[in-house]
Simulated scan of single mutants.
Amino acid sequence: MNRFSEYRIMWILVFFDLPTETKKDRKIYATFRKKLIQDGFTMFQFSIYLRHCASRENAEVHIKRVKSFLPPAGEIGILCITDKQFANIELFVGKKEKEVHTPYQQLELF
């Protein structure tokens, strides 16, 4: 099996809608975002962050990590898709199609 197969490489998307009414809510929101970024996630849209992973096993590690710092309130979704599935995304700004740029390429050194 090809180690870098588009069916083996994974993308994790974290969708969230967190309360921001109080100062405490906003701090929890900011902390959650900060922890996502520290774990290598990149903002895709305002409340959608994504991360490239070399394998399903690597993705599971990061999914488990996100679950460890879920905030007490709000709604969070975690979706894991293959690189092949992610390549089929169509993005639009208004009615104009936008070229898809991957945030970064992750390299593995052993």
Rank of each mutant, 00 (worst) to 15 (best):
M1Q: 10
R3A: 10
P71T: 00
F32Y: 02
A30Y: 02
L79P: 02
E6M: 10
F46T: 08
A59F: 07
P72H: 09
R26I: 01
I9E: 08
N58W: 04
L36M: 05
T102P: 07
T42R: 15
F92K: 14
F110G: 09
R33T: 10
D17V: 09
E97G: 05
E75L: 11
N58R: 15
A73E: 13
D25F: 03
L13V: 02
W11A: 01
L36Y: 03
L70M: 04
N58L: 11
E57N: 11
H52I: 12
G77W: 08
N58M: 13
S55L: 02
R3N: 11
Q85T: 12
L70N: 04
V100A: 08
R33D: 03
A73N: 13
K96C: 04
T82S: 15
T82P: 05
L36K: 00
R51Y: 03
D17Q: 07
D39Y: 09
F44H: 10
E97V: 07
G74D: 02
Y49T: 01
V93S: 14
M1A: 15
L13F: 15
K34E: 12
D17P: 00
I89H: 10
E75T: 15
I48G: 00
R65L: 05
M43G: 00
G74Q: 03
Q45K: 11
V14S: 01
T22F: 01
K23V: 08
I37H: 08
R26T: 04
W11V: 05
C53S: 13
F44N: 06
I89Y: 09
F15L: 12
I76Q: 00
E108H: 06
V61I: 14
N88E: 14
E6I: 07
A30T: 07
I12L: 01
R56I: 04
